[in-house]
Design a protein around this nucleic acid. Structure first.
Lengths: 218, 218
DNA sequence: AATATATCTGAACAATCCTTCAGTTAGGAA
DNA sequence: TTCCTAACTGAAGGATTGTTCAGATATATT
């Protein structure tokens, strides 16, 4: 009967708030289990039963925290994006303004460091995104990600931007592409990941310096 | 029993070569049907039965040309990449060498034009990629895509590159990311697609000029 | 026209998977 | 300890989907 995929998942929020301590650990275990299943031998798909099993709980338990499979996968992805937001918000903009090239380096490094923190998990996450029928980045997290980048860009001493939103969008998209490409090309050897950092920096620096309205250099 | 996804699809090539004329049309119809199904209301998934139905044939017929569903989806994607390769190979490098910024414009335009030729189809294709369990770009097409870009880069009058392969890879990845991002952000309005061309050009130009070993300007 | 071959059909099969729920176990409060 | 409720269990249901194959139909050949 269900011939289609719901345009908008009915519920994406956890079914219940953890009250006792153990339940918090359970949610985390389930999140991690999704990754682990994806990393398992033979391109195993993140079945609800398999994820639950890997997390050491039963399917019923899983369904106490996630209304459906989509919501589960979604939550895992969002969690990853939260890490990314946090990493970029951690860039220091408290001191005196800095040259654009400098900030470009910080952004590139923050971005890449999150992706490289757990290369296997990153690879798995790309497959999670694929397993979601309609993966439109929740506007909320993505807006915050853009905002975090914009906040850094404002701190440039020698440049300003006409359309900060547009620049942040292009920058993030390009970085996402480079990262995805690099992890996708992993089969041809791990050296792509070594070059990822350098190329990300080069890309950020070049694009930002081209997209900005150059000021007097301080 | 089949708990996993086959690491390598057993057969990705068409099951039979078209001998009579009608079969050629059938294959094309099936390809198009995949897109059409994906574009249908309610995020319909490309089921073998649904695709066949949309193509005006029966499932059995479908299975005469594709050994399995994976192969079908794969073929559709490859076909899209062939278009991209062709578009980039169409860039003129017969005349005298040209400035890098010029070539960057050609590459960006070729790339974007393919994606924008049928925006709806492009959107659908991203979902096709997601529906493939392990989408590792067939080395063959991708190598040719890179080669096509490299061929253009060699034609620069005022620049040369240390590592052409690496530059082409990063460029294509960044473009892919920008494109995917733009089509993904389509919900927020069609203006992203209008900016896509400009941003792609800016990105190409900036990155290439930063990645090259600059020569004397002719 | 008759025969051979290519192409197509679609019901049936087998497998997988998401989701539910009635019942059980564990934790905290009184 | 006793009771209440939170947390967990996992077999069963219901639905979808990939794939096959024996027979029907169309095209080419003699």
């Amino acid at each position: 009967m269900n011939d289609t995929v719901p345009t908008v998942p009915n519920r994406l929020k956890p079914r219940k708030k953890p009250i006792q301590a153990r339940s918090g650990a359970t949610v985390e275990a389930i999140h991690e289990a999704v990754i682990q299943v994806l990393l398992g031998e033979g391109l195993t798909r993140p079945t609800t039963t398999r994820v639950a099993e890997r997390a050491g709980v039963s399917v019923g338990t899983l369904y106490q925290y996630f209304p459906n499979k989509q919501a589960l996968l979604f939550a895992v992805l969002i969690s990853h994006f939260e890490d990314m937001v946090a990493a970029i918000e951690r860039i220091d903009v408290s001191g005196p303004k800095r040259p654009l090239a400098n900030l470009a380096g910080d952004i590139a490094e923050a971005y890449v460091s999150v992706k490289l923190a757990r290369p296997d998990a990153t690879t798995a996450l790309y497959r999670v995104a694929g397993a979601i029928d309609q993966f439109r980045l929740s506007t909320d997290v993505y807006q915050r990600l853009k905002a975090a980048v914009i906040r850094v860009l404002r701190h440039a001493s020698n440049a300003s931007f006409d359309d900060l939103d547009r620049v942040a969008f292009t920058l993030l998209s390009a970085l996402a592409g480079l990262s995805r490409g690099s992890f996708g090309a992993l089969v041809s050897g791990p050296e792509v990941l070594e070059r990822l950092g350098d190329e990300a920096f080069l890309l950020c620096k070049a694009y930002l310096e081209a997209a900005c309205v150059e000021n007097r250099q301080s």
